[in-house]
Amino acid sequence: MAIQSAIPVSFETYFPQGAYVVGEVEQVMKWSDDGKQQGQDLDKNTGHPMWRVRVFDADPAAKRGQGEVMVKIASISEPQLPPALNGLPFRPVIFEGLAVMPYTPDTPGRSRVAYSLRAREMKAAPKPRGSE
């Protein structure tokens, strides 16, 4: 039987060089089959509203097109962004409860498995030693 649920993965395993949030926290919207917006999507397990953030993988070896991902977070209230780094739009971040969600996209003529990332919580990354 194929995996039907999220696959837990540690932050350090998925983002060994760290990660940075860019932009704002956004609501994940729910859409009807006929393309009409139906409000904010809810997590199927917790019933909490779904949010998402754009994340850059700090790994310089990331392949072209794979350095940016979206991470979804189920939370009753809007997750707060960590502080910006030296006034830049990059915000060092860690995700707790990170999981990979495999799915098959509805793309005519193509059969492949894709995945999305979910997290239980977003936090500011700790400052490296000696960076103060």
Rank of each mutant, 00 (worst) to 15 (best):
G23K: 00
G18R: 12
P105F: 02
R54D: 14
I94W: 05
R118W: 14
P8G: 01
Q37H: 01
I7D: 00
P83T: 06
S77P: 03
Y115W: 13
Q80L: 09
S32P: 07
E121N: 11
P83K: 11
V113G: 11
V71H: 00
V93L: 06
K123V: 00
A19V: 00
V28A: 01
S10W: 03
V21S: 02
E121P: 03
K127S: 13
V113I: 15
P83G: 07
V53P: 12
L88F: 09
K44Q: 15
V21T: 05
A125S: 08
V100F: 04
A125N: 00
M101W: 09
G67F: 05
R91G: 10
S10C: 04
R54G: 09
F15P: 02
Q80T: 15
V55C: 04
A114C: 13
T46F: 08
K44H: 08
F95V: 10
E24S: 05
V25N: 06
K36N: 15
I76C: 03
M70Y: 09
E12V: 01
V100H: 04
Y103D: 13
G35Y: 03
Q4T: 12
K44V: 11
E78I: 07
M1R: 13
E24K: 02
V71I: 11
L81E: 11
K36H: 13
V9H: 01
I76S: 09
L81R: 13
Q4H: 10
V25S: 01
R112F: 07
Q4V: 07
M122F: 06
K72N: 06
V25I: 03
W31P: 02
E24L: 01
G65H: 04
T104Y: 13
V55R: 10
Q17T: 05
P128Q: 10
N45P: 09
S116M: 09
P16A: 05
S75H: 06
A6N: 10
R54S: 15
G97A: 01
K30M: 01
R120V: 14
F56A: 13
I94H: 08
T13L: 07
G87S: 07
G97M: 09
V21G: 08
G18P: 07
D57E: 10
G87K: 09
N45Y: 11
P105C: 05
G65P: 08
T104R: 15
T107R: 12
A84M: 12
R118H: 14
G39V: 02
G130T: 00
P92E: 10
V28M: 02
M101E: 13
N86H: 12
I94E: 14
V28F: 05
I76P: 01
R110P: 00
P105H: 07
A124T: 09
I76E: 10
P60A: 07
L81Y: 06
S5N: 13
G23E: 01
A62L: 11
P92S: 13
D57A: 11
P102T: 08
E24I: 08
V9C: 01
I76Q: 11
R52V: 06
Y115N: 12
P108N: 05
G18L: 03
A84H: 08
Y14F: 14
E121K: 14
G65V: 05
S131K: 14
G47A: 10
Y115S: 12
S75G: 08
V93P: 12
A62P: 12
P128H: 07
F15L: 05
A99C: 12
S111P: 00
V113F: 02
S32F: 00
Q27G: 03
P128C: 11
M29T: 09
K123M: 12
T107W: 11
